[in-house]
């Protein structure tokens, strides 16, 4: 009798755990089924490739955001950061043409600058949060405004465009495929795998989780809290830089409307994926599915004219809330007998 009871309890617990883990994946699968029913072209090879490539930007940024949020922080500046990095990259590449020509060297210089800027911007966010002792929300709200206005200033209020020939050299980075998968998707995969290992298999990842759960306890446990937290922002900056490197060759331009609201999409992807907003628990796999869900919603809405265009925001909001509800609600636990 006792055995049966235990089995039942364990069984109930397993389903709960499963739903928490696989909730986002189920939601994504459901979305895909809906997409296919609306229009079979949804599952065409071209559309799937488009979807994956598009998810790469938000996905890569969201992997960085998973670390920041797991460690109890938040970074609102990522969208503006991407815009300003894209802008500076374009300026640098346009100015390198005279010295280095329009070949790969110029593109590599641009990419190098992107990485340096991303690391630098992340470091500033991190230092202001930890050493400056300002709430991350305020720091990154400030840098969000600064980065956004800087790109407007660099572009003279207009649009910065990459030199046509350099674009020709750089273009394959977005448009070409290796083994049937576009290059940005490979970058997304690489960043995801690296992120998963870093969060789940290294001390750094465990420290992030520990700090996010309880900063004071982490400090007493001899974790260098400030340093780890700063690193999460630097990592976020690096992710933004990588996303920008694959973003620029797409249209070869940057303006003040580049990357608007990416920060909220990245945060939404992280939370849909099961990471806890107040920190202490992070899931890279979930984040990736979250990013895919967000892109899929937009894609499906473009595939149908059943819903008024004006209600796109409503549909997105509803699906995000339902996805998180599926994952968080404890109705399966409530259904099981309490003992």
């Amino acid at each position: 009798m006792a055995d049966i009871m235990t089995n039942q309890v364990t069984g109930a617990r397993t389903t709960t755990m499963d739903f928490k883990t696989y909730g986002p994946a189920v939601a994504l699968l459901l979305l895909c089924v809906i997409g296919f029913m609306l229009n079979p072209a949804f599952l065409s090879e071209g559309n799937i490739t488009n979807l994956l490539t598009r998810s790469a930007f938000i996905g890569i940024i969201a992997v960085g955001a998973t670390f920041v949020i797991t460690a109890g922080g938040i970074d609102l500046s990522v969208g503006s950061m991407a815009a300003v990095i894209a802008g500076v990259m374009i300026i640098v590449m346009n100015n390198s043409i005279d010295t280095f020509g329009t070949g790969a060297t110029t593109v590599l210089i641009g990419c190098g600058f992107s990485i340096l800027l991303g690391l630098g911007a992340g470091w500033i966010n991190g230092m202001l949060t930890t050493k400056g002792k300002i709430e991350a929300f305020i720091v990154t709200l400030g840098t969000m405004g600064i980065f956004r206005s800087l790109v407007t200033y660099f572009a003279d209020g207009g649009t910065l465009s990459l030199n046509h020939d350099v674009r020709g050299t750089y273009r394959p980075v977005y448009y070409d495929s290796i083994l049937g998968l576009p290059f940005p998707v490979w970058v997304f995969i690489a960043v995801s795998v690296a992120g998963w290992i870093l969060l789940n298999r290294t001390t750094f990842g465990r420290y992030c989780t520990a700090i996010g759960s309880n900063e004071a306890v982490a400090k007493y446990s001899a974790i260098k809290v400030d340093r780890i937290k700063t690193w999460t922002y630097v990592l976020q900056g690096l992710c933004v830089a990588m996303a920008t490197i694959i973003y620029v060759p797409r249209l070869g331009s940057a303006s003040s409307s580049t990357g608007v609201l990416w920060e909220l999409e990245a945060i939404a992807a992280v939370i849909i994926g099961g990471t806890v907003l107040k920190g202490g628990y992070g899931r890279i796999g979930g984040t990736i599915i979250g990013a895919l869900i967000l892109t899929t919603i937009g894609n499906i809405l473009n595939f149908t004219d059943v819903i008024s265009n004006y209600l796109n925001g409503t549909m997105q909001g509803l699906i995000i809330i339902v996805a998180v509800l599926l994952q968080r609600s404890d109705w399966s636990r409530r259904a099981s007998p309490k003992n």
């Binding site: 072209a41 071209g46 488009n50 598009r54 580049t258 473009n302 595939f303």
Partner: peptide, 23 residues
């Protein structure tokens, strides 16, 4: 065939058009 908002924006124009082309 259909009309969608691309918000006077290059990125949105690209994505909406990609979807129109698949559809």
């Amino acid at each position: 065939l259909d009309h969608k908002h691309a918000n006077w924006n290059r990125d949105d124009g690209f994505e909406v058009m990609q979807d129109f082309l698949s559809r």
